[in-house]
Each structure stands twice: as C-alpha cells, then as structure tokens.
Amino acid sequence: MRIAVLLPLALLTALPGCAMLQPATEVPTVAEPAGPASRARAAALLREGLRAQNPPRGGTPDPERAAALIEEAAMLGNPDAQLLVAAGHLLRGDGSRDARAAIPWLLRAAQQGQPEAQLRLARLIEGGDGTEREPAWAALWFNRAAERGVPQAQYAFALMQVAGAGTAPDQAEALARLTLAEQAGVAAARRYRQALEPRVPATEAAVALARVRDETTRGPVTTPDRPLVRFAQSALSVLGAEVEVDGRDGPATRAALTAFARREGLGVSRPYDPAVIDRLRDRLPRR
C-alpha cells in the first residue's frame, strides 16, 4: 500500500538535503525510468526512513539515517520518497534551497502520478524557479494534478484558463474548476468564482462542471493523456493551426501534430512522440 499521497508538511521540510542529481537546465518531457528493484523493497525503505525521522514515543530521531533510507527508496523508484527528497532540496535544514536539484526528483514522482509532486513541479515551472519559465508546460502539470484531485491545482489551472495564459482560454471550464476548488476549501477561489459566474451561461456552466468532475485520473501518467492532448492543441492553436482545444484526442489533432512534425523536419511516426512535444515547447513563448 502506498504511503499517504499528501505527506505531512513536517516531513516535507524537516529532512536534510540529500545528494543531488546532476540538475537539468530545463524540465525534460520524459523522466528517467525507475530503478529495477521491487516496489515492496522501496516502500519498506521509505517506512523505515519515516520511522527514523519520527520514532515511536521515547525514541530519538535520526535525521541522517532517515535521509539516507528515504533517498535509497527514491532511487529505487518510490514516488513518495522522491517527493520527500525533492522537498529536502526545496527547504534544507540550514534554510537554503536548490530548486534545480529538486526538479528531477519531482518529475520522476510526478510521472508516476504523485499529485503533490505534480503540483510542486507545476509551480516551479510556472515561476521559472530552478528552470526556464514555461507557462504552457506548467499548465499541463497543473492540469494533471487537478485531475488527480488536488484543489490548489484546480484553482491554479482555472486562473490560467481565465487569462488564456499557457493554455487556451475557457471561461466555462475555469468556472467549474473554481467551483470545485472552493468546495474543497480553497478560500481564494470564491471571489474569482463569483466574478466569473455572471459571464458564463448557466447551461454551459452545468455541462462544464459535469465534464470536469468526470475527468478524474489515478496512477502514472499515460501518453497521451487529456492534459497532454490539451497542451498539444493549445500549442498548435497558438502556432496557427485550426484545432479545437478540448483535451480529446482525435483525427484532427493527430493530423495537425503530424503536419507540424513534417514542417519541422522531424522524422517520427507517432504524433505524440517526445520529439514532437519538445519541439512544440521550443516554439511557444516562454513569458
């Protein structure tokens, strides 16, 4: 059984910085694959590390041993451990931080479907923190976290849809996401929801709310998923293609991607090949 998805904040901030991977200058489209060890072994190491960090009553915490165990679990592919290692870089014991070192760990966990990692990764990309700023790529990760039930991601992605920043504008869907975020306790969503509500016809709002509620996902990121399709459609639209931005993969979207790849001289046979997505990212404005 997986450790709780949203790990306690004290654990996310109390670990000392772990040995970092070589930092990337840009968030890659695809993470390195997880290690070959069994999930059970990685999960056991994580549990042991958490016990070392927060021992039973009467025990003495051992932060160094905890960090070593959790990093080993992360290297073996456990996404919750990877999130903890990333958090250790984002807030180290001495008060320093290294977002560049955190990003590879967040990406590994995020691609395995760890929602908190997806949210944190999106925020770093949106702010250009530790990597080049990419609103469209941040929107993709906010969207993925939103589909996995993270209210703050629903809120963040909704604001991007209202502004048309990083993704195509969609007031009806933004209203739906703000409604869900508010219902889940994101207080800031209320005023935006109230301001947007009069601008969206009630029938459109109801349809969008039902659709967004139905767009739920669990488990690792698949290719293509709805957020990746939406990213591709938004990017193609910005670049002049006539495609509907609805997150639904279909012949029109695939034909537009294939045409884009051909114009760019990419010798690939799959519309959603990482090389095609990377080139789309390269062609989009970063600010």
Rank of each mutant, 00 (worst) to 15 (best):
Q118A: 05
A110W: 02
R100E: 13
A102F: 04
F142P: 01
Q114V: 05
R123Y: 14
A68L: 14
A136M: 04
Y155N: 07
A145H: 04
R92F: 03
H89D: 01
E72Y: 01
S96N: 10
I125H: 08
D129H: 15
D94C: 04
L76H: 12
Y155L: 09
P135W: 05
L107C: 06
A86D: 06
W141A: 04
L107P: 02
R144I: 13
A145C: 10
L121T: 05
W141Q: 11
E126T: 14
L91P: 14
L83M: 13
L140W: 09
W105R: 00
P151F: 05
E116W: 08
G130T: 01
A101L: 03
L69K: 07
A74N: 05
G77P: 06
L107Y: 02
L140D: 10
L140E: 14
T131F: 11
A145T: 07
F142Q: 09
G88T: 04
A99G: 11
A67C: 12
D94M: 05
A99R: 06
A146C: 08
E71V: 08
A110V: 10
E132L: 14
L124E: 08
L84A: 03
E126A: 15
L106D: 07
A101F: 00
R92H: 05
A110E: 05
G127W: 09
D129G: 15
I70W: 00
R144N: 12
P135A: 05
G88M: 00
A156L: 13
T131H: 09
Q152Y: 15
L83Q: 09
M75K: 15
Q114L: 02
H89M: 02
A101T: 03
Q154R: 13
A73T: 01
D94W: 01
L91G: 14
Q82L: 06
P135H: 08
E72I: 01
N78T: 13
P104L: 01
A139C: 08
Q118G: 03
I70S: 00
W141K: 10
Y155S: 07
A86T: 08
P104C: 02
Y155A: 07
A86S: 10
Y155Q: 09
A122I: 12
A153Q: 08
I103V: 06
Q152G: 14
E134D: 14
